[in-house]
Design a protein around this nucleic acid. Structure first.
Lengths: 114, 114
DNA sequence: CAGTATCCTATCGGATACTG
DNA sequence: CAGTATCCGATAGGATACTG
């Protein structure tokens, strides 16, 4: 039981939902679900995302304390992204949603957003 | 197991995710979770949503076969929105996400989207 | 009551080019 | 490799006014 309510406009729960309830956030968190990935690996795994949106989404998730960024001491140096504990706790909800999308994609009528 | 994959740009699963993975869709579906509601009731329950976005979101969900619209033969006549069976199946994922947002809202750092 | 129509701004998001 | 900078068109989304 929490004091927060997504139905209230000014509630932190709503702000939180705004942060995580969008396609790119869901896919990125889902993508990091099996372990840390480097920027390029994420970019490769997530079809159709531009570097701009990937970076923007990662920064947003970092600010929300869902993801951490770590510079690797390899050569050539890379950057690794990893879910925080909070991010891990989000993984479950996000996975459920992503799997729902995969399992029911063929039941949607004309899902062209015209 | 389905053939669809949210990591693929052109996969129907991605289109589906685009349809449901946004704040208003989540809140509206969550709001209809306890049973059908009239337009005005929805508008009242969901803080901060404009009539424009409520209508737009409902139409989008209708097109996706997640919600049905029914005109009531009452006086003064109203309109009732109800989750379809497919919408009901989405309720679970969406509820998990909404509850996560409520339970972890205080753990996010500065979640102002600056 | 349940919308639609219009206006206007902010953000989304791809394309391209550039950097340490 | 992992970004940033800039440009630009498309969409999100609030405000207000109007309608059957």
């Amino acid at each position: 039981m929490s004091d927060f309510d997504v139905f209230l406009a000014d509630c932190p729960a709503r702000t939180t939902l705004n942060l995580v309830a969008d396609t790119w956030s869901v896919v990125v968190v889902f993508g990091l679900g099996r372990g840390p990935l480097r920027y390029g690996e994420l970019h490769e795994r997530i079809g159709g995302i531009s570097k701009k949106m990937l970076t923007q989404t990662l920064r947003k998730l970092e600010r929300g304390n869902l993801v951490t960024r770590r510079t690797l001491a390899t050569a050539p140096a890379g950057v690794e992204y990893r879910l925080t504990d909070l991010g891990q706790s989000l993984l479950e909800p996000v996975s459920v949603l992503a799997r729902w999308a995969e399992e029911h994609a063929d039941e949607l009528a004309g899902d062209d957003g015209s």
